[in-house]
Design a protein around this nucleic acid. Structure first.
Lengths: 220, 220
DNA sequence: TAAAATTTTTAGATTTACCTAAAAATAAAA
DNA sequence: TTTTATTTTTAGGTAAATCTAAAAATTTTA
């Protein structure tokens, strides 16, 4: 059994490992809001417990055991988010911090009953897949909106940024999960993207387009 | 804002204060599963924060501020218990430990929405009253079953012991909340009580009768 | 009311997770 | 391939919550 803090480290390492295979000390420190020296301490502890593989100066990778523990937390986090949105009427931009606390509640029974109560959801309010109780989940085939070409279309199925300001912005633009979009133009000047959504033309910045995930209908 | 640990102390002191006005160090230590020396340390800290009044060797009492914080935790605990039983189909003997963790989740918004989702329940699965968001709740007029005389009757509306074995035992005997009972005899020999419940005569030990709370129909 | 028993506190250590400052290793630039 | 910059680690320390053992206060018993 891991401590609250250890669980946070595992989760952060798991998410960072989606981008780079060897996760760096500084990257962890930034995410966890702590100093690199503290990260080194904790990494050693996790390595001793067999949760990460660690070579000095070379960063860390999760062991199978560590990955399992991390996925378990991710599962809990995402299920709680579904609960907050579906049952308690939270908005998708309001759930992150609370789920951050709820994910550490330790009761296998609780989370399985919650899963059932929610109807075994496959994804959370941000479109992220929810691992099943064995830690398995489908690798999702997302493409970033920014990567689409003119004429390409698809459905918004996720976001790669969970900050409240970003999500509120999307909501205001009508860019919520499930919406059909089509790219009508890409501006040379600033890289902003013009898209057609719900019969309307809107322009979104490159920065926004980078964080919207599309399940593509294929090239036009 | 209090730490997880401080919250536990406040809650325990609150419950102990229902029996004795000055709560003793040893009593707290026993409840919190720690040593008296540790309790003394924490009490000093709580006193510095203005959450308890403390005179050396004389035990503690909660200040208004401390009482408020304690009631807030009790409210959260009981609302989560209702959630677990009503929504996730936990049994009344299975909820305590999980609620013990959930009660520390800090989000005012969460607990108010939960309250609403549950339909603003007035009592938890053990019959204990749930404080409203201002910390107010009706002082309940319970009488212990053991205190009833022969011929007296009433309704089971609470229990003063939340251990799983005790609750399971009650369930097996059919002694659940809302059941009508009437005392038909009290055995001189061992103080056990014979009661009529759901048309059947059963005998319960003195120990059990002490922990069943009755809202009386008045004397016979 | 003095002796014995109990309760509570103090003193000094330990563990967890963190910190700062300085040293060491690695990576990037000249 | 040195020098410079960046990253990471070590060393030594702090704060929170706990512990044990011994001292002090209070309560109970005789």
């Amino acid at each position: 059994m891991q401590s609250f803090t250890e669980e946070n480290y595992l989760k952060i390492i798991y998410h960072l490992a989606e981008k780079t295979s060897n996760v760096q000390t500084n990257a962890i420190a930034e995410q966890i809001q702590t100093k690199p020296a503290s990260v080194t301490d904790m990494i050693k502890k996790l390595a001793e417990k067999g949760l990460v593989d660690y070579v000095k100066y070379q960063g860390v990778t999760l062991t199978e055991k560590g990955k399992h523990a991390a996925v378990d937390i991710v599962r809990k986090h995402r299920l709680w988010e579904v609960f907050l949105v579906d049952k308690l009427n939270f908005k998708w931009d309001e759930v992150h911090d609370v789920a951050e606390e709820l994910e550490h509640i330790r009761s296998v029974d609780l989370i399985e009953r919650l899963d059932e109560f929610l109807g075994f959801p496959k994804s959370d309010p941000h479109g992220d897949p929810i691992p099943d109780k064995n830690g398995r989940f489908a690798k999702t085939q997302f493409i970033k909106l920014i990567e689409l070409g003119i004429g390409d279309s698809g459905t918004i199925t996720g976001v790669s940024q969970h900050s409240s300001p970003f999500l509120k912005h999307l909501e205001k633009l009508g860019l919520t999960l499930g919406k059909q979009i089509q790219v009508s133009d890409v501006t040379d000047f600033d890289g902003s993207v013009e898209i057609l959504v719900a019969e309307k033309q809107i322009n979104i910045s490159r920065e926004v387009a980078k964080h919207i995930l599309i399940s593509s209908n294929g090239k036009n």
